[in-house]
């Protein structure tokens, strides 16, 4: 399957292992990523928090480029980019006067025909391919799938699955042979958007998420958002300060798929994390082959 690709800024820096791991395993499941040429930043939190028109116009430029480059679908792995691109696309389609104004600002036509997809949507469409390509089933691994906000909310924008009981990530990890644990905080906000500007709040929010994953017995938290990742990973030490329990590694869903496909942890960027992933990796590689068969 060939799909337009909008990596987004984070996937070139703090979330680069998200990009690396996805690109690494994509060929193995027949997923061809065609990057939008000369895409620009979606504007993320700052644009929509300060200037609505800008929050539509910035993603609209990339969407217009995707259209020009003949793409009918665009994968935006970063949940924030996905949300901004999809909001722009929905609003532009619903509101002709906005479409006209944005098109004037862009100085190029924009029809918003390209469908914006999240990583959970694209991968859950390909679970059969993933299952077929698994060489290292993640049997015995308990994973807490974390959706956070923008992958599922607001329902009008992230309409792909149930906003209160999403199951796509669970479907993907179980295709990889792992067990998705039941936990309560998978839809809570980690506060990622204010990681820099209001760290205290973010630590409070992250703490309850990580603690709940610990309580559920998860070996790792699985995310699909670079902001959630850097927040839960980088700040986890602060979140767990004075708390009991082991740290919980935070992995991208693409890293999980990559591991199941037998790719090297190092190449999947597992060494780039702040919370040590070595014990986690150990757990996979020490699962006896017989247990994997069962």
């Amino acid at each position: 399957m060939k799909i337009g690709y909008f990596p987004g800024c984070s996937l070139h820096s703090t979330g680069r292992e998200f990009n690396e791991s996805l690109r690494l395993f994509a060929p193995a499941i027949g997923l061809e990523l065609e990057e939008i040429k000369d895409w620009n930043c979606c504007g993320a939190t700052s644009a929509h928090a300060t200037n609505h028109l800008l929050s539509i116009a910035l993603p609209a430029r990339s969407l217009a480029l995707a259209e020009e480059q003949g793409m009918s679908e665009v994968l935006a792995p970063c949940a924030a980019c996905y949300s901004r691109l999809r909001t722009a696309s929905v609003e532009l389609r619903e509101n002709p006067s906005l479409q006209k104004e944005v098109s004037e600002v862009l100085e190029r036509p924009i029809a918003a025909t390209a469908e914006v997809r999240s990583i959970s949507e694209v991968l859950s469409r390909m679970t059969a391919d993933i299952r077929g390509a698994v060489v290292q089933p993640l049997a015995g691994l308990k994973l807490a799938c974390y959706y956070g906000c923008l992958l599922v909310r607001p329902p009008k924008i992230a309409s792909f699955e149930d906003s209160e009981m999403p199951t796509s990530l669970e479907g993907i990890v179980s295709a990889c042979g792992a067990e998705a644990v039941h936990w309560d905080r998978k839809l809570d906000c980690c506060g990622g958007g204010m990681s820099l500007s209001r760290t205290g709040s973010v630590i409070r929010l992250g703490r309850s998420i990580v603690s709940d994953a610990q309580k559920a017995g998860a070996h790792a938290i699985v995310v699909a958002c670079p902001m959630c990742h850097s927040n839960l990973d980088f700040r986890q030490r602060a979140m767990l300060k004075g708390q009991e329990g082991e740290v919980v590694p935070v992995l991208y869903i693409t890293q999980i798929v990559g591991l199941a496909l037998g790719l090297e942890p190092e190449k999947l960027g597992l060494r780039r994390h702040f919370v040590k992933t070595a014990p986690f990796i150990q757990r996979i590689t020490t699962v006896p082959a017989t247990a994997q068969e069962a």
Binding site: D38, N40, N51, H52, L53, L54, A57, L58, R61, E91, N95, S97, L98, E101, V105, L106, E107
Partner: peptide, 21 residues
């Protein structure tokens, strides 16, 4: 490459900070 494009978009949006949609 299209930085001029983006710059113009940002400036235009900031200038007309009140849309009517």
């Amino acid at each position: 490459d299209g930085i001029a494009d983006v710059r113009r978009i940002v400036d235009a949006c900031l200038a007309k900070s009140h849309g009517d949609h």
